[in-house]
Amino acid sequence: MPKNKGKGGKNRKRGKNEADDEKRELVFKEDGQEYAQVLRMLGNGRCEAMCIDGSKRLCHIRGKMHKKVWIAAGDIILLGLRDYQDDKADVIFKYMPDEARLLKAYGELPENIRLNEGIGGLDVEDEGAADDYIEFEDEDIDKI
């Protein structure tokens, strides 16, 4: 029996995800497209996203991105709108966090959108939420 001398399969040999470190050109929306923020992942290549125009849509991750570009809740994505279904869309592009900040600086994204944290993150004004513990006095501990 020959011993396995390599460090992986054919995907490693092909140089998988090698071009992720390079700077990409910023992609702006065209007509028939819309920016959105992912609310939650549903599985089976689908997600639920809140579009900038205010509507919530069920989104399908296209096959070119499926299992290659990982999308999580809170990510900014570019959707291709459907002419025949207004409540469904297709995910065309996922913006990296620095690209999303650039979009916000250019005025493409509204100011009230929250970047670089998930949907379930703590707000800045919610500082007292970390103090949800109970303090016991010495006489309370003696009663127990």
Results as ranks from 00 to 15, higher is better:
Glu117Arg: 07
Glu34Gln: 08
Gly80Ile: 04
Ile134Leu: 13
Met41Ala: 08
Val38Leu: 02
Lys23Asn: 11
Leu115Ser: 01
Arg24Asn: 10
Glu30Leu: 09
Asp31Ala: 15
Phe93Leu: 08
Lys94Ser: 01
Arg62Thr: 07
Glu127Ile: 05
Ala36Cys: 10
Gln37Pro: 04
Glu25Asn: 12
Gly32Tyr: 07
Asp140Ser: 13
Asp31Val: 15
Ala105Met: 15
Arg12His: 06
Val27Ser: 02
Gly74Gln: 04
Ser55Asp: 07
Lys104Gly: 01
Leu115Cys: 05
Pro97Arg: 04
Ala89Tyr: 01
Glu30Phe: 08
Gln33Phe: 06
Ala130Gly: 12
Glu18Ser: 09
Gly9Val: 04
Arg46Thr: 11
Lys94Glu: 03
Leu26Ile: 12
Ile119Ser: 12
Glu30Cys: 09
Tyr133Phe: 15
Gly9Lys: 05
Lys13Asn: 10
Arg24Lys: 11
Leu26Tyr: 06
Lys16Gln: 14
Asp90Trp: 01
Asp90Glu: 13
Ile61Val: 15
Tyr95Ala: 02
Lys143Cys: 06
Ile52Pro: 00
Arg82His: 14
Asn112Ser: 14
Glu25Tyr: 05
Val124Met: 07
Met41Ile: 14
Tyr84Cys: 14
Ser55Pro: 03
Ile134Trp: 05
Gly6Phe: 01
Glu18Asn: 08
Arg57Ile: 05
Lys104Ser: 12
Lys7Val: 12
Lys67Leu: 09
Ala100Met: 02
Leu109Trp: 02
Ile141His: 05
Ser55Tyr: 04
Ala105Trp: 11
Lys7Arg: 12
Asp98Gly: 07
Leu115Met: 09
Gly8Pro: 02
Gly128Ala: 05
Glu18Trp: 03
Val27Phe: 02
Leu115Ile: 02
Ile61Thr: 03
Met41Cys: 13
Val124Lys: 10
Met41Gln: 02
Gly15Gln: 03
Asp21Phe: 04
Ala49His: 01
Leu81Gly: 13
Leu115Arg: 00
Leu102Thr: 06
Ile61Lys: 00
Ile134Asn: 05
Asp90Ala: 11
Gly128Pro: 00
Asp20Asn: 11
Gly43Val: 10
Glu99Met: 07
Ile113Val: 15
Lys88Pro: 01
Asp31Met: 11
Phe136Thr: 09
Ala49Cys: 13
Arg57Tyr: 06
Gly9Asn: 12
Ser55Val: 10
Ala19Glu: 08
Glu111Cys: 14
Pro110Ala: 10
Glu30Arg: 13
Arg62Tyr: 05
Lys68Asn: 13
Arg101Asn: 10
Glu135Trp: 06
Phe93His: 04
Leu109Met: 08
Phe136Ala: 13
Asn116Ser: 15
Leu102Asn: 02
Glu137Ser: 09
Ala130Val: 13
Arg24Ile: 04
Lys16Cys: 15
Cys59Asn: 00
Arg24Thr: 13
Gly107His: 07
Phe28Ser: 15
Gly32Trp: 08
Asn17Thr: 07
Asn4Lys: 10
Gly6Lys: 00
Lys13Asp: 06
Asp75His: 02
Leu78Thr: 01
Ala105Asp: 14
Arg114Gln: 14
Gly107Pro: 13
Asp98Gln: 10
Glu34Ser: 10
Tyr35Gly: 01
Phe93Cys: 06
Asn116Ile: 03
Ala105His: 15
Ala100Gln: 01
Leu42Gln: 04
Ile76Ala: 02
Gln33Lys: 09
Asp75Ser: 11
Ile52Phe: 03
Lys67His: 09
Arg12Leu: 06
Gln85Leu: 09
Cys47Arg: 00
Met41Asp: 00
Gly32Ile: 14
Arg14Thr: 03
